[in-house]
Simulated assay, not measured.
Amino acid sequence: MLQFLGNIEAKADAKGRIFVPATFRKRLQGANEEFLVLRKDIFQDCLVLYPGTVWEDEIETLRSRLNKWNKEQQQVFRQFVLDAERIEMDASGRILIPKRYMMLVGIEVDVRFLGVDDTIEIWAKEKLEKPLVDPDEFSVKLQELMG
Rank of each mutant, 00 (worst) to 15 (best):
E56L: 07
V116N: 02
W69H: 06
G30Q: 00
L132F: 10
I42C: 01
K99P: 05
E56D: 14
K26Y: 11
G6V: 07
K71V: 12
I87G: 03
Q44D: 13
P51I: 12
R78H: 07
E85M: 13
V48D: 01
T119K: 15
L66I: 10
G115E: 10
F19M: 11
D118M: 07
L47V: 12
G6K: 03
D118Q: 11
I122Y: 04
F77G: 10
L128N: 12
I95P: 00
L114G: 10
R78S: 13
I87R: 05
I122F: 02
V54C: 07
S64P: 02
G30T: 00
Q29F: 09
D136M: 05
W55P: 00
P135D: 04
L142V: 08
M102Q: 14
Q143T: 08
E33T: 15
D45H: 03
K99A: 13
N7T: 10
R39W: 03
G106E: 01
L5G: 01
F19C: 06
L128R: 14
K15T: 04
E137T: 14
A14P: 00
R100P: 01
D57V: 07
V37Y: 08
V48Q: 05
R94Y: 11
F77Q: 08
G30P: 00
L49C: 04
E108A: 15
M1K: 12
D83S: 13
I18F: 11
D41F: 04
P51W: 06
V133R: 09
R63K: 09
V37C: 11
M103G: 09
L36N: 06
G115R: 09
A31S: 15
D117Y: 05
V109R: 14
R63V: 10
E34T: 14
Q143G: 08
L49P: 02
E72W: 05
T119H: 13
D45Q: 10
I97N: 00
S64Y: 02
E144S: 09
D117K: 06
F4R: 00
V105H: 01
G30V: 00
L2M: 12
W123K: 07
W69E: 06
V48P: 01
R86A: 10
E121R: 01
K26P: 02
L142M: 13
M1I: 12
V81G: 11
G52D: 08
M1E: 08
L2T: 09
I59V: 15
T61P: 02
C46W: 03
L28Q: 04
D90E: 08
R78I: 02
E34Y: 10
L47D: 06
F35G: 09
E56G: 05
R100I: 02
D118L: 03
W69I: 01
G93A: 03
K99S: 13
A14K: 13
K125S: 15
D117V: 01
Q75D: 07
V81H: 11
F77M: 15
A10E: 13
L2Q: 12
L132S: 12
M146C: 13
